[in-house]
Simulated scan of single mutants.
Amino acid sequence: MSKRKKNGITALADEIIEQCDARHPADQLLRQALKNEKEMLPRHKAAVVERVYTYFRWKGCLDAERTLNRQVRMARELDADFLSYAGKIKSEVLRKVVPEWTAETMKVTREWLCQIQRPVTLWLRAPKASGKRVELAMKKELQPAGEGCWRNTFRYFGKEDLFQMSHFQHGHFEIQDLASQFVGNFCQPEPGENWWDMCAGEGGKTVHLADLLQQKGCVWATDRAAWRLQRLKRRAARAKIFNYQSAPWDGKSKPPFRKPFDGILLDAPCSGLGTWQRNPNARWTTTFEDVKELTELQFKLLESAVARLKPGGKLVYSVCTLTKQETTRVMRRFEKAFPEMEPWTWDGTKPAVPEVCELDFGKPVHGYTVQPDQWKSNGMFVARWRRRKKA
């Protein structure tokens, strides 16, 4: 790499690091900056991304008194040592890769800390009609996740930019984390049902639910951000999904429809600790106060869901976080407030645990935590209930 190119990579990465805060996350800044770099080669763009994310992964271990350039060099040295000798990294060093308040909200294990320092695992999901085609075309770069509902889920080992692949652009597969796919399967939607995806975001779970309905039934998708719903529409069009409706909703006013639903998915706003491997900068912008405020919002959204659920209907709660405040405590508070909602237990089948995870499932539960080090995915908590039928 020429010195001029190297200096350009360093300058751009450092500029992004300095601009990054809670309102300007690293992935957003990177997307905008690299889009403007029309002449930068793909491998140089990858070097910018690597420099930024490596800095945030190891930020807690760095000397803030040093120059940013020196801090980044130290972070890259730590990263290289970790990837070569993860087992020899001292626990007191590893504990610094997340803020101290994390230990007040969850059990911080060495396994989890090691996992969030590793490169992200990429997962694909293909619609049933395209699964075989994708597997044949990319066979050497894919590992199937399992059978049954996981038959068209694959771990990707290749180097090519998935967004530039013709198979992606023609809707033959979605890039969707394994934990996110588990949420859709955990809902167990049946063809002919009507579902509400309350906080749909950019539509990853909406598209998955609509696909599971086999074009029979409908998914109603709402989100407070109109721009997210526009991205949902583009995503659904690419995937050739048409059995959905979308509308903006702020989570406070009356929903934009009156009908009761067979099933509701609340993928609630959360602190996002489960995504800290993918979004390491969020470790340093999320606070304990955020966690406490979000638990109230999560409970209020669950309250809104109950009012729109048919007798016998299904309610699934999911958050991509691992804090006890936003997971088991919200679940127990909800059950105490709404005795008409009975636990809908899961015994490790329907959906089955992906075979690729090689997990032994314990006793049946209705609240389950996807551990990143076991699933090689984001962390996720899911809980589900059914509304009791009237006597």
Results as ranks from 00 to 15, higher is better:
5 K>L: 15
15 E>S: 15
18 E>C: 07
19 Q>T: 02
23 R>A: 00
26 A>K: 06
27 D>F: 04
36 N>M: 13
41 L>Q: 15
41 L>I: 07
44 H>D: 13
47 A>I: 04
56 F>C: 01
56 F>Y: 10
60 G>I: 06
60 G>T: 06
71 Q>Y: 05
72 V>D: 02
72 V>C: 02
75 A>Y: 07
81 D>Y: 13
85 Y>T: 12
88 K>C: 09
93 V>W: 07
93 V>R: 08
95 R>F: 12
98 V>R: 03
99 P>M: 09
102 T>P: 06
108 V>Y: 11
109 T>E: 11
119 P>Q: 03
136 L>D: 15
139 K>H: 12
143 Q>W: 06
150 W>L: 08
151 R>S: 13
153 T>E: 13
157 F>N: 07
157 F>V: 02
157 F>L: 09
157 F>R: 09
160 E>V: 12
170 H>R: 15
171 G>S: 02
181 Q>K: 05
184 G>Q: 09
185 N>R: 12
186 F>D: 09
189 P>S: 01
196 W>D: 05
198 M>K: 06
208 H>G: 00
211 D>R: 00
214 Q>V: 00
218 C>L: 04
218 C>P: 01
223 D>C: 11
226 A>T: 13
234 R>Q: 14
242 F>G: 00
249 W>V: 05
260 P>N: 12
264 I>T: 03
266 L>A: 07
269 P>I: 00
279 N>L: 13
287 T>S: 11
297 L>S: 09
297 L>I: 15
299 F>D: 09
306 V>G: 05
310 K>T: 07
312 G>A: 08
317 Y>E: 02
319 V>G: 06
319 V>Q: 08
322 L>Q: 11
325 Q>N: 12
327 T>C: 15
336 K>P: 03
338 F>R: 10
341 M>S: 02
344 W>I: 03
345 T>G: 06
352 A>K: 10
353 V>D: 01
353 V>L: 13
355 E>V: 01
365 V>S: 08
369 T>I: 13
373 D>L: 03
373 D>S: 14
375 W>S: 08
375 W>V: 12
377 S>I: 02
382 V>F: 10
382 V>P: 01
385 W>T: 03
391 A>M: 08
